[in-house]
């Protein structure tokens, strides 16, 4: 189990090596950000479809979509990534690692986001819907002028958390060879046979991006709530 403890036997952090690999890691960070952004955009849209499908009022559709969402939410993303990447070719569909990774991450987080949307829509009191009906507002006006402005503020924290969540899950894409940050660090590590600097720097880069993003999202939430007139 625990195989040993000596005080720093092989610890030699080399600054020269760290600076040498920094540019490559930064380039890979751009890939990571691109993957997270693309995945999030897909998840936002598919998640909305999942959420709306559960509001159609047709019981069979609601039940089937619920079960699909549950299935996606309770199985590991990394297995889903493998599944989508390897199953396609078996049936003659070849997807690039990048495409299958985006589909997997997009679908996975769509399941989570549909729950956030659902909770947001459900938080709008029934009276608001009834009032819209009484005023004979069209469906578009009901949604865009009345419902969404009220459903958005309670949904934003969840949406923000999953943006950071997607960013932190992108390293899993390395298993099918997407050249994101963790993939680059592993490649550098095995080339120079030094893992200390690459992996430590990856950890620091993740912290440097996710902590300010989380902070910025908190600010954005209160800004939106104010802009929509939901809070003074």
């Amino acid at each position: 189990m625990f195989e040993g403890f000596e005080l720093f036997p092989k610890f030699d952090w080399k600054w020269s090596f760290a600076f040498e690999i920094l540019p490559r890691l930064l380039w890979a960070t751009l890939n990571t950000l691109l993957a997270a952004g693309t995945g999030y955009a897909i998840a936002l849209i598919i998640g909305l479809l999942f959420a709306l499908a559960q509001r159609t009022g047709i019981r069979a559709i609601t039940l089937i979509v619920r079960e699909i969402v549950e299935f996606i939410r309770s199985t590991p993303l990394v297995v889903q990534i493998f599944f989508i990447f390897y199953v396609g070719p078996q049936f003659g569909i070849r997807l690039s690692p990048w495409t299958s990774g985006m589909i997997a991450i997009g679908l996975h987080y769509a399941a989570y986001l549909s729950e956030v949307y659902r909770a947001g829509l459900e938080s709008v009191p029934r009276g608001q819907w009834e009032a819209c009906k009484a005023l004979n507002l069209s469906m578009t006006r009901t949604y865009f002028r009345v419902i969404i402005p009220q459903a958005l503020p309670p949904a934003l924290p969840g949406m923000g958390n999953y943006l950071v969540g997607i960013f932190k899950d992108t390293p899993m894409l390395m298993v099918i060879g997407v050249t994101e940050l963790m993939h680059a660090a592993t490649a550098l590590g095995s080339t120079y046979y030094r893992y200390l600097e690459p992996y430590t720097m990856v950890g620091i880069l993740f912290l440097l991006i996710s902590l300010p993003t989380a902070f910025g999202l908190r600010r954005f939430e209160s800004f939106v709530a104010k802009a929509l007139g939901m809070r003074k």
């Binding site: 005080l7 036997p9 092989k10 610890f11 963790m182 200390l196 430590t200 950890g203 996710s210």
Partner: peptide, 19 residues
Amino acid sequence: GTSLLVQLYWIFFVLPLLG
């Protein structure tokens, strides 16, 4: 703030270097 995968690799590959 960091990924589980990064932490896992760090614990498995880097921690031995720290003893």
